[in-house]
């Protein structure tokens, strides 16, 4: 299986011209109409659309989503070799709101989130962000979109050859016109939000897992993005830090109007941040609604998950 997935990664590379050469084999197999055709090819066997799960998601091929929908994933399919990870996952996020995606380990949550920034491209389906199809973006357009999005990786993904301060300064130096002094101020301020001001000179290896996670969060927001994607922002944190981080996410939404998608297992975190919750199961969004709706669902998978 490792061999089957080896090349897939090249898809997310930046270069326009190379894009076609590095398209994964799955691309052609699933999407007979080619990437440029909004109506795609035939749907793969045995898939049902995600309508039932998320009533607000448009049909594949129906054009851009409504203005106030900032992210819309339509009927995403993705497999790695023989492993079907996404199997028609659909969800929509309204501008200025926080969505939470929950689900078991290995359910495909991280894979789903990576489609929003074209770290992965779907075998079938349409990821729309800010009214554009991300999977068709390349070059400067893709860079601009990515710069308007902050991404917190599941493991933090701090650059371990750089100190905390350099990790953040690296982003600012490359992508902002701030002076050195202004950058330092911004870094200090951002670190204070995650309550880790004193870690600036430290290297990632000197920090605990939870601290790395919070620095990853600080780095994701340092460029003041419009959209934030959090892959398990609170995993590995103590209850006090869970609250701090969750409240920070809420503050970013309320004060700056940042829209976000957060993957989380953490009920406390979900309760604090969720405007809308989605439950992923067997590669589909099984249920979308308020967190209460999900908790009181009769579906066995959900009841099992919430232990009710």
């Amino acid at each position: 299986m490792a061999d089957g997935t080896e090349r897939r990664d090249d898809v997310k590379e930046d270069d326009v011209q190379d894009e076609a050469r590095y398209a994964p084999p799955g691309e052609k197999r699933r999407d007979g109409g080619g990437r440029g055709d909004p109506n795609g090819g035939e749907k793969p066997q045995g898939q049902r659309n995600g309508q039932a799960a998320s009533e607000r998601v448009g049909e594949v091929g129906s054009g851009p989503p409504p203005e106030d929908t900032i992210i819309e994933l339509r009927d995403l399919h993705k497999s790695f070799g023989d492993l079907d990870v996404l199997n028609g996952a659909s969800l929509a996020v309204e501008d200025g709101t926080s969505a939470v995606v929950m689900g078991g380990s290995g359910a495909g949550k991280s894979v789903l989130l990576k489609h929003v920034v074209k770290l992965l491209t779907p075998d079938y389906g349409e990821p729309w962000v800010k009214g554009r199809r991300v999977d068709q973006m390349t070059g400067g357009e893709l860079d601009d979109l990515r710069l308007s999005i902050g991404y917190l990786f599941q493991g933090g993904a701090l650059f371990d050859s750089m100190s905390v301060e350099e990790n953040m300064n690296f982003f600012l130096r490359r992508h902002s016109d701030l002076s050195e002094g202004e950058r330092q101020d911004r870094i200090e301020e951002t670190l204070s939000w995650v309550k880790l001001e004193d870690t600036a000179p430290k290297y990632p290896a000197e920090l605990s897992g939870g601290q790395q996670k919070r620095i990853g969060l600080a780095r994701a927001i340092v460029l003041q993005p419009e959209i934030l994607l959090y892959d398990e922002p609170t995993t590995g944190l103590d209850p006090v830090s869970v609250r701090t981080v969750s409240e920070l996410i809420v503050r970013l939404r309320d004060e700056r109007g940042i829209s976000s998608v957060a993957i989380t297992h953490d009920l406390l975190c979900a309760e604090i941040i969720a405007d809308r919750a989605h439950f992923i199961y067997e590669g589909k969004i099984l249920e979308s609604g308020s967190l209460e709706d999900l908790k009181h669902s009769d579906h066995p998978a959900l009841r099992n998950f919430f232990g009710s």
Partner: peptide
């Protein structure tokens, strides 16, 4: 494997 290359990629920092 620690997703640092992905992190460069999504920050439009051209890991290659």
């Amino acid at each position: 494997v620690t997703e640092q290359i992905d992190a460069l990629e999504v920050a439009a920092l051209k890991p290659f």
